[in-house]
Design a protein around this nucleic acid. Structure first.
Lengths: 332, 332
DNA sequence: ATGAAAGCGCTAACAA
DNA sequence: TTGTTAGCGCTTTCAT
């Protein structure tokens, strides 16, 4: 009789090797077994092209060794970097990444979190846009947010000190003689953006600087579109929510025949790899994004080992002064 | 007595709702059930904070709805874009992405492919570096390679026409009067690189151009490092394996006080988002990378629906002439 | 329409 | 050491 063609299971291997399934399992997992049986099992497995079923293993083990990661935009180099740090760190511990992109859409974010939670041992939510209390409801399993304050809720948080970074860059601009600074704001629900805006307000008040906030977003196109509003406001320096936005603005400025930093100074956030290669090289606040990814894993790992061990990591930023910022045109 | 704290299962819900597990399952999956029982089940599930176990479902279903993706470098914007197209397309069909980064290391690649295969319904290998025959051995399940010829092997392939792209850019440079072209070669095991190099050789022969190939790699640093060799060769135009490499070289050229395209013309491959924002904006061969991701999913889907339905998709490229290429300095 | 029971592929406790 | 067997959590016949 012909057998229905299906993937060989451990039962098939056991039969072919004339041993029990337990023995096959032991051989496969490197447990102590009689060499002769080991040989027979290996031969049978090879013969049948046997591959163990990861799902069955996961069910039995009660864990999948899968970590769900939600990012708002896979296209942003900053998240790629975080992903890389995360993939590197989790990989070293035998865990893999289940990646989903919410495309900055809240409903997507909610749906994806629910779905990821079904298959994963833990979740890393990158710059989540959902309200905190809603996030808290998901926090049944190990959960880490990046770049998001989590209050006293039962989750961990890894991020950077956006407030300090903004403070530093405003001081830098003030020192260069700028009295009116424009800010290209990021996504409305971004906590990082709120922090940066808050720091800008505080610093400006302390230094008696004028500030114009223009709503932009997180992409280069958003930055490009914001140019007219900025020009109308008459700022002499601009800080963008991130480097991508800064790049878009830079291109717009160049199209208008404006010199950077001669006419307008420009700074971003992130220090994405290309920032140093732009013309002029971009002054920016460097965020240790890859390290945030690593730290997120460490925090997750603590929760994996012992439920309820929450923690918060806030990494320092570093102002990287390059060619895109210079003295204010009307400075003494 | 106190129960040990563990996640509630369908059994717990069934007991609490005083129905069978089958009924709970039916309610959860929207099957026709008496409204009163539906109510009781939903109430019990909510009360217990019940969440179904995805692994158990997958085991029962014989499928995980997970697609494994292997990329050589998560940090390369080009792969982020592919990932995005893939995530978008698979997501629309209820599949998720299991992502792994081989960091351009062959051993990693091999190990990760094996691992991914254990948990996934299908695999997408992005620009794999492993030899074809080894890849063929993995092709027990649905498999798609991107940017890699697969011969008659039992897998599908989605990619771009690198050969045509290179041909077009060489013609462009020749028209501008360039007689000696430098090529910054990509990773040695990259099939795309081989294709581009082959096209360059063929075109140069036909047009009687001189060619100097300098081994670089796939990152901006690689491009930056290649500058001396290029300068020594005395080329008047350079084509880089990809935009990242071109960007590194561009920065190096600028540091040397050389003008692009005044002294040297420069072109890349990919058209990553920042390419248009560089100074000068980068002439490059645009690859429909996101679309490659979508097509990869379509090909995978065909295999998922019916084993053995292999296909090949080769998408056209488009030369995007921007400011980084111009007439040869010594042209008439 | 509902429940009892088998079984997805694997590992681990228990026996021998 | 090896085999037998129970069971991980779920869905799905098969009866009722």
């Amino acid at each position: 009789m012909y057998e229905v063609i299906r993937k060989p299971t451990i039962v098939d291997v056991a039969r072919a090797a004339r041993v029990s399934t337990a023995t096959v399992s032991r051989v496969l997992n490197g447990r102590r077994v009689d060499p002769e049986l080991v040989r027979r099992v290996r031969a049978a497995a090879a013969e049948l092209h046997y591959r163990p079923n990861g799902t069955a293993r996961s069910l039995q083990a009660g864990a999948t060794r899968l970590i769900g990661v939600l990012v708002p935009d896979l296209g942003n180099p900053s998240f790629s970097e975080l992903l890389r740090g995360l993939a590197d760190a989790t990989g070293a511990h035998g865990h893999r990444l289940l990646v989903a992109d919410s495309k900055e859409i809240q409903d997507e974010e909610r749906a994806l979190i629910h779905e990821l939670a079904l298959h994963c041992d833990g979740l890393v939510l990158c710059s989540p846009r959902l309200p905190l209390e809603e996030l808290a409801r998901f926090a049944v399993g190990p959960l880490v947010c990046t770049n998001r304050e989590v209050g006293g809720l039962s989750m961990s948080s890894a991020g950077v000190d956006s407030y300090a970074g903004m403070t530093e860059i405003v001081r830098h601009l003030a020192t260069l003689g700028h009295r009116h600074i424009g800010y290209l704001a990021g996504p409305p629900d971004s906590w990082s953006n709120a922090e940066r805006q808050r720091a800008l307000g505080d610093s400006a008040a302390a230094l008696r600087l004028q500030v114009t906030v223009v709503q932009a977003g997180s992409t280069s196109d958003d930055g490009h579109r914001a140019l007219p509003a900025l020009l109308a406001a008459g700022v002499s320096a601009v800080v963008a929510f991130n480097d991508l936005v800064a790049i878009g603005l830079l291109a717009g400025l160049r199209e208008q025949g404006l010199d950077v930093p001669g006419d307008v100074s420009l700074a971003g956030f992130d220090d994405i790899p290309v920032a140093q290669f732009l013309a002029p090289p971009l002054t920016t606040v460097r965020l240790p994004t890859e390290e945030v990814g690593r730290q997120a894993w460490e925090l997750l790992r603590e929760q994996l080992q012992q439920a309820g061990r929450h923690g918060t990591v806030r990494l320092p930023t570093e102002l990287v002064v390059r060619g895109s910022t210079g003295p204010a045109p009307d400075a003494p």
